[in-house]
Every structure is written in C-alpha cells, then in structure tokens.
Design a protein around this nucleic acid. Sequence first.
DNA 1: TCAGGCGTTGCATATTGTGCAACAGCCATT
DNA 2: AATGGCTGTTGCACAATATGCAACGCCTGA
Lengths: 254, 254
Amino acid sequence: MSQTVDRALSILPLLAEGPADLGQVADRLGVHKSTALRLLRTLHEHGLVYRQSDQRYRLGARLFALAQEAMENLDIREIAHPHLARLNEQCGHTVHLAVYEENEVLYIDKVESRYPVRMYSRIGKPVAITVAAVAKLLLADLPEPERRALAQQLDYPLYTARSTPHAEAFLKELATVREQGWATDLGGHEESINCVAAPIRGADGRVVAAMSVSAPNVVVTAEELLTLLPLVRRTADAISGEYSGRTPVKDRTE
Amino acid sequence: MSQTVDRALSILPLLAEGPADLGQVADRLGVHKSTALRLLRTLHEHGLVYRQSDQRYRLGARLFALAQEAMENLDIREIAHPHLARLNEQCGHTVHLAVYEENEVLYIDKVESRYPVRMYSRIGKPVAITVAAVAKLLLADLPEPERRALAQQLDYPLYTARSTPHAEAFLKELATVREQGWATDLGGHEESINCVAAPIRGADGRVVAAMSVSAPNVVVTAEELLTLLPLVRRTADAISGEYSGRTPVKDRTE
DNA sequence: TCAGGCGTTGCATATTGTGCAACAGCCATT
DNA sequence: AATGGCTGTTGCACAATATGCAACGCCTGA
C-alpha cells in the first residue's frame, strides 16, 4: 500500500469533521507543513477539497458529484426504486433499501411520505447493523465463517432494552431470519419504531439487497405492521425477478 | 503536487463511470498493473473503493458517508433548511438552495412537495450555470475580472430558445441581476419551467448562497410565479439575517 | 490436460516525496 | 508606524518511496 496516498486520503475524514487549516492538518497527519500542503493541493486539483475564503480547507464539491454518480450507477437501486415508491403509496410508511458492503450495511434509497424533507439524511450512512431488520437479512446470507467472524468483531450497543445484546444472540437471530426468509426489528433501535424487511435476491439466489417498511407504533402497532409482511415480500420478490432477469454481467464490450 | 496521489485520485472519476477491473484501470491510468493494484489497495483500505464479487472495482461506501458528513457540516444549509421548508409549505412549489464553488454552482438542498421521491437526484450535481436563476445571482456577485474570465470560458448550450446564447448576453444579464438583487429563469433550461431566485448574504454583504422557487407553467404562469418574488426575497433576507448573526440564534419552536 | 488471461508478489532501480530552513504576507500588539 | 508572531509558501539536497519488470499461482475455457 502506498504511504503518500494513504496520508492524502487520511485528510478526507479529518476534514469531514469540519474545516481545518494547514497547520492542523499537518499536525494530525504527523507530517511537515510543506508535505501537508502538497497533499492538499493535489486533493484540491481533483476537487475533493475546497479552500474557503478564510483559507481553511473543506471537503469539496466533486465528492458529492462522485457519490452521486456512484449511486446512480447502482442498478439494483434503479430497478428497485419504482417498486419502493409504489409500496410507499400503498401503505404510507417509510420504505428503505439497503445493501451490505465491507462489514457495513448502508441505506441506498429511502421513500418517506410524511416528511418529504431531510430525505437524504440517512442515505449513505451506515446502519445500526446489530438490530436493523435489513442488516439481519443481509448478514444472514453471508457464508457461515464470514458471518461468524463478523458477529464476533461487532459492537452490540444497547440502543434499547430490546437491542441484540451479544454475538450469540445475534447469530441465533440470523439463523432464524435465514430460515424464515424475512426479518423484523421491533423497537431494537429506537423504542417506538418497528420494521419489517424482506430480501432481494440475484439470479444465483444470493441476497443482494434488502428492503424494509418502518413505522412508529403511535401510528400502527407492531402486529398491524406485520400484516404488511406479505405485501413487502411480494414487492421484494418482484424486484428480485426484475433484477435477476436482466443480464447479470453487463460489459459494454460484449 | 504529488504524482502518486494524483494517479490514485484519477481512479475515482474513472470508476464513477462504472465498475472496472485491474487491467482497465491500469490501462486508463497509463501505468503498470502492479502500480494500479497498489493504488487500488490503498483506496480500498480507506473505503473509497469496493471490490465486488466479480473482482471488479466500484466506488465504495465511505464516499457516501464523507459526502454526507460534509453536507451536514455546511452551516448555511442547516440554517436555511427550516426557512426553505416553510416557504415550500406556503407556496407548494419546489425550493432550491445553491452555492458557488470552484467555477461551479451546485444545489445543496431541495424541498419538493409534489413528488417526495428522488429528492436527492440533483443535490450535489452541478447546475446549468448559464441559465439557472441561482447561478446568475451567485456569479453576479463575483469580482468583476473573475466574473468576466469565467463567462468567457463557459459553454453556452442552447437548452431552449430562451437559453443564454453567449458570454456577452450573459454578462449583461449578470449586470442586471446584480443591480436588481434578484433573478429569474424563464424557460431557459427547460421549456416549461420557470424560476425566481433571491440571494443570501453574509455579514459582509457578499452573496454566500442563493435560493429559488421553481414551477412548471402548467401549474402557474410566469407572471403568477413572479408574484411570489416578495415572499422569496423575504425568506432569503431572513436566512441572511440569521446566517450573518444579526438575528438571534434559531429557535426551533415555531 | 493444456493454454491463456488475470491478479499477485519480491526485488533492484531511480523517480518521487520528504523535511528543513529561509522567505513572504498578514494581523494584532506596542 | 514599527515590531513581533503566526501561517502559508518555495527551493533544494537527500533518501525514502513508488515504480516496472519478470516470475508465479490461480482459475476458466478449450
């Protein structure tokens, strides 16, 4: 691995916390100012870093554009979206789409009816992996050794009294989820919020994404929410069908 | 500027176009495979790049997380958002917030009432800079030489018959906008869509952001939309006041 | 079974990044 | 106004670091 690039990339999360000046960056990187300067310049040329009027550095615009483009190229998301929207119209609740990547689960789409605002607020953010219904589905499908290894290395924060407490409980829950083909989160993340989720599978049967419907129990009780399960599963299956129907490997030079 | 970092960062836009394997990356960078490998590995360790099951590389999850965090730390956005939402409630149309950065104008927030879906679709994407009402406001406030230089180097695509045709017309328009303190886009980007926009100013009077209301003329005519101008300007002024510190800090209880 | 393609590794070379020290510009202090 | 300190910037000599090569291992398809 490359030291220079490593240092340069370490600047990004650092700036994500907030603007910083040259000296601060150099200090936190543990390098000379002049070195930090050259790294920042290179990042700047690529638009990943922006120099605001007070001379401090911020994350730049191209970062958004890149994240943007990357998202639009996710074909699962594109295929799934109309289905999610339709489901949202039918039940009125928040609908999520999530994928697993590199020991994390993240939302890649969200349709929310009540508060159209702040929609992007959680897209791209890692999910509470030990409790979220979609996370259970995605992890349950991992190869057994990988699943076990991951479960061991995770933290198990007690968001609520119903949060998954430790690795054993989690693995047991994953086994159940794997068998039944759907998952729930009943107040495991936030006391008053319940979710039901279903898996989306590729042509080979492996889980490529998961979707969920969430609602606070002041609106519907957990039992009422569970009555939506068949609808959620049908939607997920429809997406699976469409996703696996298309040619799985799309090389433009074919 | 650092060559190694430069090469590594060049990989990102390349992958934004779509997944690529090691050979493709090496070719397009003009370096040896082993070099590309080490760069990709470093990017991978930082989560900017993800290796999917077919071994090809994609842009990774941390990119979203970074873009996310960077956004949330934009204080203008945070201050402006409740105002935008309120304006949206009052008039029902789409409301945008945009900033200028590095020869580009980009939307950093958007509130849309009719179709809550696909809200993020344009946030972060560069704006049609020669016609958008918000762009006119932001560019009109640049120092004269910079404004002129930028106007010359821009392309002037003819989206519609009413698009700004060339640099001279653009500079003239900017002068007008600068004087009157507001801007419009009447079908200059999409035939049927009109916008009115107003500037948001910092404590020193410089334009730090711009906001607009957009509506298709099947809903309201251009004249009707213009009647909203006072409301838009009041909203922008309210944000300016709060941003520059004149108005006491935001109270969330309204 | 073999051939071809792709990803991966260790290594010698010199290209590339590094830290130093000196310089320049800015603001606040006297 | 003049001074001192702070921050960003530049040129340079040195060596640490990235690079390309060639060889290897692995998988796929013939």
